[in-house]
Simulated assay, not measured.
Amino acid sequence: MEKRNYPLIYLFLLPSIVMFLVFYLVPIITVFTTSFTEWNGFNSPEFVGMGNYIRLFANKAFLYSLRNLLLWSLIAMTLHVGFGVLVAFILFRKPKGWKFTRAVFMVPNVISTAAWALIYKFIFNNDMGILNNLIRKVNPDFNVQWFYNSPYAFWAVTFTWLFFAVIVTLIVLNDLMAIPEEVNEAAKVDGATALQVAFKIHLPLCRNSIGTAMILSITSRVAMYETIVLTTAGGPGDDTMNLPLILVNSIMNLKHGYANSIGVIMFIIGLATLFIINKSFRMNESVY
């Protein structure tokens, strides 16, 4: 490309660069700098050093949030992503009714997170919920308030997202469909079974999409707010407490500096997730 075209390229990039600086970089810098201050959002921030972080790590709710996040992340990167990958491999074989199944699988993701949380609140309701009424067909004495009793609340929240992995499915399915047909034909010529092709050829070739799905799934757990606030509000006790809930509560109490220290922790967790999975799945390397 001739150098004389560079000014035009920079001109087209300018709006995106300005938007990135104004709406991303400046807020990120503000969050980091004000996390070291005592700030109520109205008066000028007062520098307190590591005070917010010391208070944060001394807060039991924060430690419980990290524990819950770790458990949810492990579930997300194994069961949640695993289920989405399994569905993708099944749909890739195009069984009878696969298009209808793909469309139905999309439905929960069309509904907003808040609406889906309220739907599940009724599903898990002890008196009129579908789940408990089905269980009482076998055990008439069964009575559990799923979102309000420990340890059931943690698993009730988990089930609101665990099996709705359509984003994972679509990403991996797209990767499967991009595999050159020559690769499949060569495997058939060599006498590979369908199972061998799936595990030894297709699965390794989909490592980038699976890694991407893991990043999306884990970071979604880091930012999970609506589902918890509309079902358990972090309870019972601290069974479903998480970082966004503490952050929002801190803002409501005009503790913006403290809230931003939580934002910094969430930002670091997101970057660490990106780095670890990127390295583990060798996502910067070509798969072919």
Rank of each mutant, 00 (worst) to 15 (best):
F147D: 05
Y148P: 01
P151M: 02
Y152S: 07
A153D: 15
F154N: 04
W155R: 11
L162H: 05
F163Y: 05
F164W: 09
A165V: 06
A165C: 15
T169S: 00
I171H: 04
L173T: 10
D175V: 11
D175A: 15
L176G: 11
A178N: 15
P180D: 13
E181L: 13
E181T: 12
E181M: 08
V183W: 08
N184T: 09
E185S: 13
A187N: 08
V189M: 07
V189F: 08
A192V: 12
T193C: 06
T193P: 03
Q196Y: 01
Q196N: 00
Q196L: 01
A198G: 04
A198W: 02
K200C: 00
I201E: 07
H202G: 04
L203A: 03
L203D: 03
C206R: 05
G211H: 03
A213R: 09
M214C: 00
S217T: 09
S217Y: 01
I218G: 02
R221A: 04
M224A: 13
Y225G: 01
T227S: 00
I228G: 13
V229Y: 13
L230N: 14
L230R: 07
T231P: 14
T231E: 00
T232E: 05
P236E: 08
D238V: 15
D238K: 02
D239W: 08
M241Q: 15
